[in-house]
Design a protein around this nucleic acid. Structure first.
Lengths: 278, 278
DNA sequence: CGCTGTCTTGAACTGTCTCAACCATGGTGG
DNA sequence: CCACCATGGTTGAGACAGTTCAAGACAGCG
């Protein structure tokens, strides 16, 4: 049924079962291009592929055949390092382009796994240059998307650069909130699509530490946590807290370490749902 | 904000003092393109700009005016975070393109600072699209460069993902060695262009820890250190050591923790030159 | 020469990792 | 229906490693 399980049958991912025809018009809209050249675009056929949760659009070692523009859903970029540890190295959402990091290579150098049911526009490599030259807006859109992915990658480095795990988490939440806001969602109510384990990998800490950081931030009243639904209660304090790159130094007085402070009610945990909740 | 903090007169960076004429031919060679369309390329004028060590090609907040392709020298990409801490978020060398991360933005979102005297080809933004459409090889080269920068950024995430500081350093050295090898240099003899402080920022650790990690690796006989000149003595062992993503676990026996081991001669340090040296 | 900047080393503290439980949930099958 | 397991999340305890603070050595330079 599913020719795109994580392992078998995924090699011919692009000649997919669930392919639908669409046109370039929708893609340009998705990429935020102004509606020029709509006439050309509308006539240009395009393939949509659906990906089920936990399945990959492409995997490490697979030949590179196309770019994939995310239509809906979100993906994690990851790869197994030599010791068998799954390193998550990025997140991608609606409007992001998958596959750029290995587009000039014969084979993919990472996996792109759907965190939920998702769909993408496919831009086959062999058609792309022709398409781009015929349609300057597309080329421009892709360039823009490339820049955005580069910035996201750098933003991730910023997240990783914080030493304290709570700061890392705080930065991640704020960054993710901003991402959501760009799509018109509330920057304060987040739904994490990944489990603690993946999040830990992304943040570069142990998954237990992620748990503890969540509790710490929520005990401090900065966020509310309910499983994978996060609400940012106090964006300003969270923001100033996230500034602490190194140990609380000068301006830490404002909202420095919440370690010794706020050792308030252990909030008699009655199970995982109500574990913390300001 | 002070547009010229690091260096005076840098605000009008692009209408530079030291501008020289060249042509596209050299650029395409630099970017590794096969010598097609040489005739067109040779006729296309191009501007070279020289940048002195510690000066910036562009800085945060500056309007984006051009891409810069590194002709010689190397750069660090960085930005001051809100707490005034300089976060280094990347490294760029010969053949890399600077400015892509903000090319679709009105203003730069990071600094690109020369680590030594350097020079770059300038590709003004307003001429670029025209150039690219007229010269497909250039467009392709830029796409390729974009992919490479993306991969570098992900590689950095990999480096940061390691928990142990020595592993981070080991991974960085190996990665840097590979970079050098791509340019035809030896992957075993490295000259670091950045100080311990910048390196620490890049690796996400304290600069003292970088020092200690260098000593640890050299005491283990994996590398030899002489100030900023590093020699990789045992690439294989270094490589297996760099695999340790998390705490020394299963395969750590092979070349796991070098902490309790190799507590050999403190090597009576007679100054910084000969501090460690296998 | 003293200055400053870079690098190294030492000692104490403390945060994070690891190992180990525990709880809740969801699915499976007897 | 419930026992059973697998999965994902939370929490505790101890050890170790990285940070921080502090000091010192050396090189370059005005």
């Amino acid at each position: 049924m599913n020719p795109t399980f994580l392992t078998p049958g995924n090699s011919h991912a692009l000649d997919s079962d669930l392919a639908i025809e669409s046109n370039l018009l929708a893609l340009l809209e998705l990429l935020g291009m102004p509606p020029h050249d709509r006439e050309h675009a509308a006539r240009q056929p395009l393939v949509i592929r659906r990906i089920k949760a936990r399945h990959a659009v492409y995997q490490w070692g697979e030949p590179v055949r196309a770019l994939a523009v995310i239509r809906h859903g979100s993906f994690k970029l990851c790869h197994l390092d030599e010791s068998g540890y799954e390193q998550v190295s990025g997140l991608a959402m609606r409007g992001d382009v998958l596959g750029m990091e290995s587009f000039d290579l014969p084979q993919h150098n990472s996996d792109a796994v759907a965190l939920e049911d998702a769909s993408v526009f496919l831009l086959p490599r062999d058609q792309l240059t022709a398409l781009a030259t015929r349609m300057p807006p597309l080329a421009q859109a892709l360039q823009q998307a490339s820049g955005r992915r580069l910035r996201q990658s750098q933003a991730l480095v910023d997240v990783l650069a914080a030493v304290a795990s709570e700061v890392r988490l705080a930065r991640f939440l704020l960054w993710h909130g901003r991402q959501m806001a760009e799509d018109g969602w509330s920057p304060r109510r987040l739904h994490l699509r990944m489990g603690r384990r993946d999040l830990a990998s992304l943040l570069g800490v142990a998954h237990e530490t992620v748990s503890r950081s969540f509790t710490a931030l929520s005990m401090a009243g900065l966020i509310a946590v309910e499983d994978r639904d996060i609400e940012i209660l106090d964006p300003l304090r969270l923001q100033t807290f996230a500034r602490n790159t190194r140990r609380p130094q000068e301006e830490s007085r404002a909202c420095g370490n919440l370690r010794p402070t706020s050792a308030a009610s252990p909030a008699a945990s009655s199970g995982r749902r109500s574990a913390y909740m300001a």
